[in-house]
């Protein structure tokens, strides 16, 4: 099973990083080729919350279905895939470790493609490449979003 492990130091407190992680509306900015996210129920992240994420793969619009499995505020966020989309299995964990004004973030992705879904995609190599690029870019995008500053009041 492909596994991507990433670690990054974000120059922002864990509270700020969590604000980005806990808001599913940021998902299309965290994954380069995620287009939209439909949340059920809408609102901040919670165990059992389900997402339908539309993604671009080449010139196709594909679907990924995810459920949130673990939420420990400002510490851990985990999710896993649910049947019906691009992935047969998908597991994602983000662990935050605060260090003064910085936050160390450890990210793990594990995934396999659904053969019945990829059978409908003409170019599976593009799907594999796109998934890898998106999951590897997640940490940097989380850092960029978390390091944005509010306007001076």
């Amino acid at each position: 099973m492909p596994r991507i492990v990433d670690s990054i130091v974000i120059l922002a407190p864990a509270e700020t990083v969590w604000r980005v992680l806990a808001d599913p509306t940021y998902i299309p900015r965290l994954y380069r080729d995620a287009l939209t996210v439909e949340m059920n129920p809408p609102g901040p992240v919670a165990v059992g919350q389900r997402y339908k994420v539309l993604n671009r793969v080449g010139d196709l619009r594909t679907e990924v279905f995810v459920v949130i499995t673990r939420v420990e505020k400002e510490k851990v966020l985990s999710s896993r895939g649910t049947p019906g989309g691009l992935f047969e299995t998908f597991r994602h964990t983000v662990v935050l470790t605060p260090n003064a004004w910085e936050t160390k973030v450890d990210i793990t992705f594990e995934y396999t493609f659904s053969s019945s879904y990829t059978a409908k995609i003409p170019d599976v190599a593009t799907a594999e490449r796109t998934a890898g690029t998106n999951l590897r870019g997640y940490a940097q995008n989380l850092k960029d979003l978390s390091e944005l500053l509010p306007l001076p009041s």
């Binding site: 509306t25 299309p28 287009l35 939209t36 996210v37």
Partner: peptide
Amino acid sequence: MDPYYTPKLYPDILNIMVDPP
């Protein structure tokens, strides 16, 4: 018609909240 595409339409838009959802 899908407002959740907005962050993918404008390069400097990060997220969107809509009421009603």
